[in-house]
Amino acid sequence: MKKNLYILPILFSILLFVQCTEEITDNSIIPNATCTDGIQNGDETGLDCGGSNCAPCEDAIGGIDFSGTYMQEDQVGRPAVSIVYITPGLRDAYNTTIPSELTANFQQDMQANLLLHHPAYSTNILGQDATAFSTLLSKDVLWVGQSGITTFYDGTNILTGRRLQDDVMDFHLLLLYGGADVNNPLNDGTNGQPLLIRDGVSENDKPFLANFPYLASPF
């Protein structure tokens, strides 16, 4: 009889273990995943840590303090948009306006600066008038293709990313000063026109690497 009393808790433990095993394999039946149940469940990223409810898992960061609130000071989407198209006194505001509100707040300023830079602007190689072009510029994020060639402009593909070797300033200048015909651009230094569609610097001063981290070593 005494022996049987020992067996009961053992049987109970086995039953509990089986139940827990089922819970692990089927999260849907857990009524309450907690941060103290000894199981990695819910959206925990480790055993009873991480996820939206538990304390952070500290194995990788070793208790280092990452707490606090961080406020925006600068942002970059496409290269050189701010310098060319935003009035200097508005650039701090530009850097602290979320992208979804840039068009509403800065498209008109961009269009005005576009026309100040190039009063004769009519259209660009993308077929955009000043309003359409400045609207594109004001959606100042870098579009990056999930597939295909990722380039700012390679002569064929347009605004599908930005590679290190892309001559982004020449593309900016072409859109601003080159007119509609890519094969017969304006402001190319011929026919008495100034050279404004390229700066004469077409590559970096140091070769990039074929593999990670891709950027050339420092001087």
Partner: peptide
């Protein structure tokens, strides 16, 4: 997968719209 129809120059290419920010601890 990204979103299609974002870039009029590549209308069928799925696109991620990406930017980088710096933020300072308050």
């Amino acid at each position: 997968t990204g979103a299609i129809g974002i870039n009029p120059n590549a209308p069928t290419t799925p696109i991620y719209s990406i930017w980088v920010e710096t933020k300072r601890k308050q």
